[in-house]
């Protein structure tokens, strides 16, 4: 096919896209854009071609994103922005660096995706989840305080039998709170992950913060822990809150299922095109027959040795959901009486 015909077909193709595309070179000049990009960014015909991007793109967020990609190497930047002043058009913007075979920066490519549909659903869902969260947690909040008031004798002394019953009620309230929290986590991860906020994440920093958060719990059981993180680990792209939830659930399990004075170890390293996170404990271990089921929702070992351990059975299904949403994998090895090791691989790109 002669060059001119091919170029025209390609132009026809990119103009037919329902997403906007805009390409800049390494000097920041706009090399190419299609009709949708022109419409989204109000570019006025072909006037912006060959021009510096910051002179023609009025939207500050887009300008900032392109600038960031040009200055610093971010693997991926996705941000949802509202392009129209009327506020009814929502566009997700992705900016990626364009590199040659030697990793030199050739320019940037910006994708503009209309998420009006998605956002309306997202709004309804997040409002629904927020409402459900509020409606369920409010009575739990007041009843928890009310049982504490009774137990502390602030409204009169109680008999032993009365105290005993109230203690049981309080324990149930705490259990229900955990359940509500876990169910909300599962809902969010299952249905919302793909529209959630995605950014470049520093996994070591998130892990350190989680470990600090869990320190009181491990201290209570005198469980020692070691965290070893390889240096200069690259950033990965993902959702901060769900990665936090993943770490919290793994470490919480390690603490819960390890008897007092035991230990757990978290090791984070780069492995080929992945970041590997290994968490191993000297805990109860998992029976071979249960291993295929541990990631199922609500699955818990119900036996003499675990009956004193509280939990909703959703923790590992949350972990698996997060790992899969990040296109990673999770593997478990365990020996009863010795301990368990979870190995997670999260891809870099």
């Amino acid at each position: 096919m002669p060059y001119r015909a091919m170029k025209e077909s390609l132009n026809a193709v990119i103009d037919s896209l329902s997403d906007g595309i805009l390409v800049t070179d390494d000097a920041g000049c706009i090399m190419l854009y299609n009709q949708k990009a022109e419409a989204f960014l109000d570019l006025k015909g072909h006037a912006a071609l060959g021009q510096p991007f910051q002179d023609h793109i009025k939207n500050k967020v887009v300008v900032e994103m392109i600038t960031k990609i040009m200055i610093r190497d971010n693997p991926y930047q996705a941000e949802e922005i509202c392009l129209m002043d009327t506020g009814d058009k929502r566009v997700r913007v992705h900016v990626n660096p364009v590199k040659d075979a030697h990793e030199a920066l050739l320019g940037t490519v910006t994708l503009l995706h209309d998420v009006a549909q998605l956002s309306a659903i997202d709004k309804i869902k997040s409002n629904f989840l927020a409402m459900v969260s509020h409606q369920l947690k409010s009575p739990l909040s007041s009843t928890l305080l009310q049982t504490s008031i009774l137990l502390d004798g602030m409204v009169g002394e109680m008999s032993e039998k009365q105290r005993d019953l109230i203690q049981k009620i309080k324990a149930k309230i705490r259990g229900m709170t955990d359940l509500v929290n876990d169910v909300l986590d599962v809902c969010f991860i299952e249905e919302g992950a793909y529209v959630a906020q995605i950014e470049a994440l520093n996994l070591p920093e998130i892990l350190q913060r989680t470990v600090e958060l869990m320190q009181p719990q491990s201290h209570d059981k005198n469980i020692g822990f070691q965290v070893s993180i390889d240096e200069d680990l690259p950033l990965i792209t993902g959702n901060r809150s769900s990665i936090e939830a993943m770490f919290i659930n793994l470490i919480s399990n390690a603490i819960k299922y390890t008897p007092a004075n035991g230990q757990f170890h978290v090791h984070m390293m780069k492995k080929a095109q992945h970041i590997q996170i290994e968490i191993s404990d000297t805990g109860l271990g998992i029976e071979a027959k249960d291993i295929p089921h541990i990631f199922e929702k609500f699955f818990r070992e119900r036996s003499e040795r675990t009956k004193h351990i509280s939990g909703t059975g959703l923790g590992l299904s949350i972990v698996k959901g997060v790992v899969e949403a990040h296109r990673g994998s999770i593997h478990v090895e365990s020996e009863v009486g010795k301990g368990t090791t979870f190995t997670i691989l999260l891809p870099l790109k």
Binding site: E80, D122, S126, N127, L129, A130, S133, H134, K137, S138, S141, N181, L184, D185, F188, G192, V195, A196, Q197, N239, R240, S241, S242, E244, A245
Partner: peptide, 12 residues
């Protein structure tokens, strides 16, 4: 009332 689990833009 809303914990860390819901990171949609309203909660950022």
């Amino acid at each position: 009332a809303v914990g860390n689990a819901i990171p949609s833009s309203k909660y950022t």
